[in-house]
């Protein structure tokens, strides 16, 4: 389960239907008692009077996949998880759309909260994903994660 290479990057926004299907797929796994989901949504930030209308995501795929599999391994070592999934968008994602989906499942509730927080932080700091914030007037700035 841990070594399996996963398809993490999704071209375009992550649809609510995709998220719903992911939940439905877990209904056959009877050892799960708690799911936790984190969804990252593109925020229409305002910078000097200009509003962000979309983020264009790119990544260094070979390294990103390697890093994500390390994060996966670390999460399974550290927490008592039944399964976990990470998805991230690439390409142009409009404000209000979902670009990041972390789905953590375990027997019981406590582990999924801490694991989710930890996984989200690791993805933000360690995975080479780059984002261009595009304003309504098509001007842009490069996004940088802050904590």
């Amino acid at each position: 389960m841990m070594k399996k290479k996963k398809n993490i990057f999704i071209e375009g926004a992550i649809s609510p239907e995709f998220i719903a299907e992911s939940i439905a797929k877990h209904q056959t796994k009877m050892n799960i008692g708690a799911h936790n989901i984190f969804l990252g949504q593109v925020r229409a930030d305002e910078v000097e009077g200009k509003k962000v209308s979309a983020i264009e995501y790119t990544c260094y795929k070979a390294m990103a996949e390697e890093k994500l599999s390390e994060i996966r391994e670390r999460a399974f070592e550290k927490y008592d998880l039944t399964c976990m999934h990470i998805y991230h968008s690439l390409g142009n994602i409009k404000a209000g759309e979902i670009c990041f989906f972390v789905f953590v499942s375990s027997k019981r509730r406590k582990q999924v909260y801490v694991a989710t927080e930890d996984i989200v932080n690791m993805v933000k700091t360690d995975v080479p994903i780059f984002g261009k914030e595009i304003f309504e007037d098509q001007d842009y700035q490069w996004k940088e994660n802050t904590f």
């Binding site: 260094y60 390294m63 933000k124 994660n145």
Partner: peptide, 27 residues
């Protein structure tokens, strides 16, 4: 595909992959 913490004393050869990365912005 591994971040180099310090570039001192590292040798590279022809088949190595060097990447220059700006700040990360995932999530």
């Amino acid at each position: 595909q591994k971040i180099i913490e310090t570039t001192e004393g590292i040798d590279v050869n022809i088949n190595d992959e060097i990447a220059v990365l700006p700040p990360f912005a995932g999530g």
